[in-house]
Write a protein that binds this DNA or RNA. Sequence first.
DNA 1: ATGAAACAGTACGATACTGTCTCGTACTGG
DNA 2: CCAGTACGAGACAGTATCGTACTGTTTCAT
Lengths: 192, 192
Amino acid sequence: MDPRVARSRATVLDAATAILVESGPTALTVDAVVARSGVARSTIYRHWATRDDLVGDVFDHCTPLPAPPPAELGFEAAMRHFLHDLVRQFADPKWARLMPALMALKSYEPTMGAIEQRREAMERKVSHELFTRGQREGLFGPDLDRNQATALLVGPIVFALVSGEVPITEHLADASLASFMAGVRAGAATAP
Amino acid sequence: MDPRVARSRATVLDAATAILVESGPTALTVDAVVARSGVARSTIYRHWATRDDLVGDVFDHCTPLPAPPPAELGFEAAMRHFLHDLVRQFADPKWARLMPALMALKSYEPTMGAIEQRREAMERKVSHELFTRGQREGLFGPDLDRNQATALLVGPIVFALVSGEVPITEHLADASLASFMAGVRAGAATAP
DNA sequence: ATGAAACAGTACGATACTGTCTCGTACTGG
DNA sequence: CCAGTACGAGACAGTATCGTACTGTTTCAT
C-alpha cells in the first residue's frame, strides 16, 4: 500500500475522531475535517465515497470489542474479568463520549444501527457463553433469562457512563457482580 | 391567554415532538415543522426566538418527572414503587426514543445538558430520600454509596432501554430490586 | 362593530454543507 | 530516471437551513 494513502487515511481518521469526540456527529463535516487535518477535500473524497462512509469508519475505528475471558475460569471469575474489561473500555474518554452518540444514532440511522448491532452481538455472544459456564456449575438453571441477567450485570456500568455521577471503576463492577451473585444464591435471578 | 396562541403552540409542539421521535434531532428543522403542522413559519418565530428554543421546549414537554413514593412505605416497597414508575415512564415509546437522544446531546449542547441535569437532579433527590428510609430501617449504614446503589438499581432498566434486547417490565424492576436487596442482606452493597 | 393581535403565505439574504471537477505539484515504485 | 499516482488548493453548482421582512386575512376581546 502506498504510504501516502496510509498517511492520509490515518490523518483524516484522527482528525475526524477528535471532532466527533469534542463536538458530536453533526459537527463532523467534511469541511471541518479538512480544516483540522490539513488534508485536502479531494483527497478525502478519493478515500471515502460519502461523508456517511467516513463517519461509519470513525465509529468502526473506535469501537472496542469485548475480550473473551480465559476458558479455565469459572463463571464468577470469568464474569468479573468480562466486567473489568468493560470498565477499562469505558475508562477511555474517547469511547465514553462516542457510545452515547452511537446509541442515539442507531435509532435513526440504519448505517450506525448496523455498527452498533455488530458490537452488541459480539458482546452478547461472550456474555452468553459465560452464562453457559454458570449453568454447568449449577449456579442457575437453564430457565435463567440471560438477557435480563446481562442487564443486571452490565446495566449499572452503562448507567454510570451515561449518568456521569458514578465513577466507573472496578469496584463498581465488583459491586454489580456481588449483588447479582447474592441474588442468584437467594434464588431471585432464576425466576423466569 | 389568547386561544389562538394556545392552539398554535400546541400544534407546533405536537408536530415537533413527532418529528423528533420519528427522525431525530437533526431532522427537527423549522421547515419540517411548518410542513407537518401547517402552522406558518412566521407564527413559529413569533413564539420561539430560535430553533434551539423550540427543541428545548419539546424536550421539556416530554420529560417525565419521578413521582415520590408514599411516605408511609418502607425502603423496599417505596423503591419498588419508584422503579415501577420508571418502567412506566420508559414504556412510553415517545420518551423511550427521546431519552437516548437527550443523553447524547447533553455532552455537546449545554442547553440540553441543563434540561437533562434538572431531570436527573429530581430523580436523584427522590432516590436519595428513599435511601434515607433504608438507613433509618437499619438495612445499611450511612457509608452506603448512594450514587452507586442508584446505579445498581436503575442501571439494569436503563440498559434495557438502550439495548432494546430486554423487555422493560415490572418484572425486570423486581429482579433488579431483589438482586440489590440480596446484596444488601449479604453485606455486599455496604462496602465503601 | 372595531381596533389589536395573531395568523398564513411567501419572498429574501446569508450561511453552511455536499459532492464534483480541474490544474499544477510532489511523491513513489520499478 | 520516469511514468503513474497521490496530493493540495480551490472553484463550482446544487441544496438545505436559518432567521427576517412584508402582505393580506382571520380571529379575539371589548
